[in-house]
Every structure is written in C-alpha cells, then in structure tokens.
Simulated scan of single mutants.
Amino acid sequence: MATSSGPGRVLAYLESAKNLTGSACGLAGLALTFTGLAGAYWPVVVAGLYGAGALIAPPARPAVPDFPDGSERLEALRTDFATLRAYLGEVDLPPAAAGRLVELTEVLDGLLAPGWVSEVLATDPEGVHALSRAVHQDIPESVDTYLRTRWWTRITPGSEPPERHLERQLELLHREAEALAGGLREAESRRQETHTRYLEDRGGL
C-alpha cells in the first residue's frame, strides 16, 4: 500500500500549485544566473527563489463533496413515499385514525407532486428535511407503534385505547404538513408583492 501511495504523492506534488510556482521562481533564478547577477551563489539564489515561490503559492484544497441537491432528494423521497403508501394500504386502522391519515397523505402528496410546488420546496432545505422526517420516521413509527400497542391492549384490557394516541399523532403531523404548505404559500405571496412594488417603483407610481 505504501509503495503505491508514494509515487502518487510525488506526482500530486509535481502537479501542485506550490511546485509550479516554486519552479517558475527557480527558473527566474536561473535567468539571473545566466545574466551574471546571481554570481557564485547562484545555487542558493535558485533554491531560495524556489522555496519562496512554494511558500507563497496557495495550499492545495480538497474538492467539495457533491451532495444531492433539493430536487434530487425530493425525487428519492417520492419513491419512498410511494413505498410508505403501499405499506399504509395494508394496515387496518380505526375509522377516525384512517380519516386523519388520508388528510395527512393528501397534503404530503400535494407537496411532493412534480411541478412548481415541489420546485419551490426544493429550495427550502428545512422543508425538505421536515418532509423526509415525516415520511421516513414519524408516520411509520406512529402506525407501527399503534399496531404493537393494540396487540398488548387486547391481552391486557383496561389501559388507554392506543387509537387515541394515533389520532393525536396524525393530527399533529397534519398540522406540521399544513404549516409547511402555508409557509410555501406565504413565500410565493411575498414574491408576488415584491414584484408589485418593483413595478410600482419602476413606474414612479
């Protein structure tokens, strides 16, 4: 491993800005030598100019990681949302909870549908994160916890009905989704108002 990395490091340095800048300064030192200005100390002059050039050159900078942008994350999230809906279609829920779940998934479906809404959402990292959390964590956890708790309730009756917690959880998630949609709507409204003010200012009205 060491033998393979050694030549690679040497090659990387030869191609680096430090070596190229130092070499250019070293060539300037050789030019001084040929003109007789460096005198008998020309090796020191050349080496010194090379070192100075290597020092002033900007350090090597690693490439910035290429992470998926908002559009790519939403595209992957649409696939995961379809998987989630298939799972929810196999779950037997009480009528009230099932109704709240339908309301929630309708809002999420509207936010994720390809079009200008999702294009606006893609520019909001916090919104994409909140949507991803709902699809990947909150909804599956709420439903699965209900199913597991319901089984225990059947063999140990007398505890609080688990569907109450599920209904409350789905209600809170629905509010979060509506708040996200409302924030996008307000952003578009502000954009419209800004354009109106721009036109008014441009026309001197």
Rank of each mutant, 00 (worst) to 15 (best):
M1C: 13
S5A: 15
G8H: 13
R9L: 15
Y13K: 13
E15C: 09
K18A: 15
N19W: 15
S23R: 06
G26V: 06
G26C: 07
G29M: 06
G29I: 03
G29E: 06
G29H: 12
A31L: 09
T33I: 00
A38K: 02
Y41T: 11
Y41F: 13
W42T: 01
V44G: 15
V46E: 03
G51N: 01
A52M: 13
L55K: 11
L55C: 07
I56P: 00
A57V: 06
P58C: 04
P58D: 02
A60C: 02
A60V: 08
P65Y: 03
P65T: 00
P65W: 01
D66F: 01
F67E: 09
E72L: 02
R73H: 00
A76V: 02
L77E: 01
R78E: 00
T79V: 09
D80M: 03
D80Y: 02
A82R: 01
A82D: 04
L84M: 07
L84I: 05
L93Y: 00
P95S: 14
A96G: 04
A97V: 08
A98W: 04
G99N: 10
R100V: 02
R100G: 07
R100D: 13
V102R: 10
V102D: 10
E103G: 10
L104V: 08
T105M: 11
V107I: 14
L108A: 07
D109F: 11
G110Q: 09
L111W: 11
L111F: 07
L112T: 10
A113V: 05
P114H: 09
P114G: 06
P114I: 11
V120T: 13
V120F: 06
L121G: 05
A122M: 09
P125K: 09
P125M: 08
E126W: 06
G127F: 02
V128T: 06
V128H: 05
L131I: 12
L131E: 04
R133Q: 11
A134E: 02
D138I: 07
I139V: 15
P140I: 11
P140V: 07
V143P: 03
V143G: 06
V143L: 03
T145Q: 07
T149R: 12
R150V: 00
W151P: 00
W152N: 07
T153L: 05
I155F: 08
P157Q: 06
E160C: 00
E160Q: 12
P161G: 11
P162W: 01
H165S: 12
L166E: 04
E167R: 12
E171N: 04
L172D: 06
L172S: 07
L173H: 05
H174S: 10
R175Y: 07
E178N: 09
A179G: 08
A179R: 14
G183E: 08
L184V: 05
L184A: 04
R185E: 15
R190A: 13
R190Q: 14
R191P: 03
Y198F: 15
D201E: 15
R202H: 14
G203D: 15
G203F: 15
L205R: 15
